[in-house]
Design a protein around this nucleic acid. Sequence first.
DNA 1: ACAAGTTGTCACAGAAATGTCACGGGAAGA
DNA 2: TCTTCCCGTGACATTTCTGTGACAACTTGT
Lengths: 226, 226
Amino acid sequence: MPRILIVEDEEAMLIGLRDNLEFEGYEVDTANRGDDGFKKLQSGSYDLVLLDVMLPGMSGFDVCKKTRAEDNDTPIILLTARGEELDKVLGLELGADDYVTKPFSLRELLARIKVILRRTANVKQDDSPQRVTIGQLQVSFDDFEALHNDEPVKMSYKEFEILHYLYRHAGRIVSRDDILDQVWGMDYQPTARTVDNFIVRLRNKIDTEDSQHIVTVHGIGYKLVL
Amino acid sequence: MPRILIVEDEEAMLIGLRDNLEFEGYEVDTANRGDDGFKKLQSGSYDLVLLDVMLPGMSGFDVCKKTRAEDNDTPIILLTARGEELDKVLGLELGADDYVTKPFSLRELLARIKVILRRTANVKQDDSPQRVTIGQLQVSFDDFEALHNDEPVKMSYKEFEILHYLYRHAGRIVSRDDILDQVWGMDYQPTARTVDNFIVRLRNKIDTEDSQHIVTVHGIGYKLVL
DNA sequence: ACAAGTTGTCACAGAAATGTCACGGGAAGA
DNA sequence: TCTTCCCGTGACATTTCTGTGACAACTTGT
């Protein structure tokens, strides 16, 4: 099911949206500050974002612009209050995909979400697989391929899985247990030491002498910095 | 460079689109009435049309329908306003290839244009000779023929099928199960080992010592590299 | 600076996946 | 019926991947 991020500071609205979207079967994540939302967006792991304009930390407009500036194409629906600078939105310069004006009907919002998800689903099919840059590697998680200067780099399935997990949570700290649960599953789990070993292998392929992308957070876990 | 026709009555939008598309290197022609646009389309000399829905003279919907009725396959992207009968568009019954909802981001529109042009470019290529080069072989999937230095190489039906499947997904990884499902069908399926055997046979015919075209991706499947 | 706890690194062995081969059954054609 | 060609299988060799333990190097708090 598609993953949706809601960035909204008004508690009641946030909860209302979350519950309804979850009821519709979407996976929902939330943020109540603009800057937090932006960070979460950087992970690139959402299929769509509902973005309030008036936000503490960073305005929805800015989140939108900065996201696009990073070549992040995650579809964005802006939630604007009546009278807010609609011109900006309409002027196309922001890079948002759609917007709704508060107060809006839930059915209308849901319809728009569906339309956009459907549209992007099509685009994704046609488009070549997503390529992301991590350190000195160009990685495509879709077809398990990693390139360094257009030369393929060997990576095992587990290495891809771990890197993918780190990537989806880029910028955030993940514990060894998180990784074990996600990649190995709750049932069978090797030593926590095993994770370190994979980290070493990944580092050898990703990091260079002058740039560390997989950072150790002593006592807690690891963090992927893009 | 591809030729694009813009049919749009709103002056500002028309000019904005035209300038941007020209900047991207497209050849652009314009019309500001539905009936004019339709006439220009009849010449069949465009690679793509951006078609507004709300138009004087003839609606975009009608232009779309009549164009298709004339067996004219020029790709059409509809420019719809919010709230317009999206259902119709979505139902594809009109024969449009895609649509964007105003307000749309320019980057999105450009992306869609590229996708469609690429798609149709491929189709055109497919009409021409059906002989492809895979490794040291010249293969024609239509007449089940494989040549190596103009000498026919024996290949069984199943070998062709598997190679064809790999070829259609060239560059992407296909699992043994994918191959089994596609070539043998969901019902009867031999051992996964069987696939390996065919891979060996194909490799003997395709690969040379210095160039591997059928690559194994450990733990996942195989990938054909052209 | 020291001790205690964490993490980095390495080589190795068992496990799992793949490569390869030869053989038997079966279908199509002679 | 006999031959020939494909196909699928199983056994075995080979390659690749995983997980572990040992030890070095590093952090942290005292």
